[in-house]
């Protein structure tokens, strides 16, 4: 059966790419270095597949259909929103595992929206290219990636409790999957940031530290109990992405989290936290 080897919670901040020099050099070095550190840790974990839990930013899914949760079971490419240093490419999906997760879900009360051919956005492709692809280079082995997208930036949002249940369902499906895959999870997003609103550029370090503490202690109940109003007020509309953290944490079944790096970077409009989930 497949084995779960851990995971990461990391930001997917596109401003890092479009305004690299805007952040103080010391902070920038720490954040870019932390992504490399995560890649090294992933390489050392032996992972052969990474399920990346991200969210659309009203680009991939339009007003005609807004799925609460979606999994790509076939061809994958991306990102749609290319950035300097983040170019569109073909991505090796673990199609058998992705299909197994969707089928397991349909038999256990989780009606996945399925993308047979999918284009990612930066929520998937930033952690994919900086961590998964880099870990493959470092380890010399292929590491496949499965895109899971939650409604965490566009309403109607998936509830935090459903995000947790979904993570548990993914975990059950992986552990029941007949293969020798070693699977890791990445929750992509956060922490505090305001997107497209007049508050853009603010960072709430106190809120970020609170979220980091909850993640490191694997207090999913504490994270899931944050109300939408609380998150929007203290962390901004971008912090709704902690749903991705909750899902990945529940899927990993980690014993605890270890903070790799945290930097509040107003010039990059985000409180950037990177955490390893250790099983």
């Amino acid at each position: 059966m497949a084995e779960i080897v851990g995971g990461f919670l990391v930001p997917h901040d596109p401003v890092m790419f479009v305004a690299r020099d805007a952040a103080p050099a010391e902070q920038a070095e720490k954040v870019w270095g932390a992504f490399e550190n995560c890649a090294e840790r992933l390489a050392a974990s032996g992972a052969t597949t990474v399920v990346i839990v991200g969210n659309d930013h009203y680009m991939l899914f339009g007003t005609t259909c807004l799925p609460k949760y979606c999994i790509a079971t076939g061809h994958v490419e991306g990102p749609l929103d290319q950035l300097p240093g983040l170019k569109k490419e073909q991505i090796a999906n673990n199609e058998a595992l992705a299909t197994a997760i969707a089928e397991h879900g349909s038999e256990s009360g989780f009606d996945w929206a399925v993308a047979r051919s999918f284009t990612t956005d930066h929520a998937f492709s930033i952690p994919y290219q900086l961590i998964v692809k880099r870990a493959a280079e470092l380890s010399g082995r292929e590491i496949k990636a499965v895109p899971v997208y939650l409604a965490a930036a566009v309403d109607p949002f998936i509830t935090t409790h459903r995000a947790r249940q979904l993570g548990e369902q993914i975990r059950d499906a992986v552990l029941a999957f007949d293969s020798d895959d070693k699977v890791a999870f990445i929750g992509s997003g956060g922490i505090s940031h305001w997107v497209g609103t007049k508050e853009s550029g603010q960072v709430n370090e106190e809120f970020d530290r609170r979220v980091i503490d909850l993640c490191c202690s694997m207090d999913i109940d504490g994270l899931a109990s944050l109300t939408n109003e609380e998150i929007l007020e203290q962390g901004g509309n971008g912090a709704m992405e902690i749903r991705n953290f909750i899902c990945a944490m529940a899927a990993s079944g980690a014993a605890h989290g270890e903070l790799v790096e945290y930097q509040p970077v107003p010039a990059w409009v985000t409180g950037l936290g990177l955490i390893e989930l250790r099983v």
């Binding site: 997917h12 401003v15 479009v18 305004a19 805007a22 007049k198 550029g201 010039a267 409009v269 985000t270």
Partner: peptide
């Protein structure tokens, strides 16, 4: 706000 990032995050 003086932030210069011009993309969704």
């Amino acid at each position: 706000s003086g932030y210069s990032g011009s993309i969704k995050g």
